[in-house]
Computed example of a mutant assay.
Amino acid sequence: MSTDYQQARETLGIRLRELRLQSPAGRLTGTQLAERLGWPHSKVYKLEGGRQTATTDDLRAWADGVGRPQAFDELNTRLKGFESHIRSWRRQLSAGHRPVQDSWNSEVDRSTTIRAWEEAVIPGMLQTPEYARAIFLRYADLHGSTRDTDEAVRARMRRQEWLYRAGHRFHALVWEAALHALVCPPSVLTAQLDRLAGVIGMDTVELGVVPLNASLRIPAANGFWVLDERLVIAEDWHAELWLDDADLVTSYLRVWETLRESAVYGADAQAVIARAQRSTRA
Rank of each mutant, 00 (worst) to 15 (best):
G49M: 02
A116E: 15
A134N: 05
S145D: 07
L79F: 05
R133C: 03
A61Q: 15
N105E: 10
Q70H: 14
G30F: 10
I86A: 06
R60A: 09
A61W: 08
Q101G: 09
W89S: 00
T31Y: 11
A134K: 02
L79A: 08
M125H: 06
G49P: 08
A63N: 04
R138V: 13
P69M: 07
V121K: 01
W104S: 03
D141G: 03
M125P: 05
K43M: 05
L37C: 02
K43C: 04
T56G: 07
E48V: 08
T55V: 03
P129H: 06
T77V: 12
A71Y: 03
A132Q: 13
A34V: 12
L33A: 01
R98H: 11
N76D: 13
L37R: 07
L47M: 11
D102A: 12
H143K: 04
N105K: 13
P129W: 10
E130Q: 15
I135M: 14
L37Y: 08
A71H: 04
E118A: 07
T56C: 00
R138W: 09
L93R: 00
A34E: 09
F82S: 02
D57C: 00
A63E: 05
I135Q: 07
T146Q: 12
R138N: 12
Y139N: 06
Q70F: 06
L33R: 11
R68K: 13
W89H: 15
G30D: 04
D64S: 06
I122D: 01
R98D: 05
S94T: 14
L75T: 09
N76P: 04
Y45F: 14
A63Q: 03
F72L: 03
Q70M: 06
L93K: 00
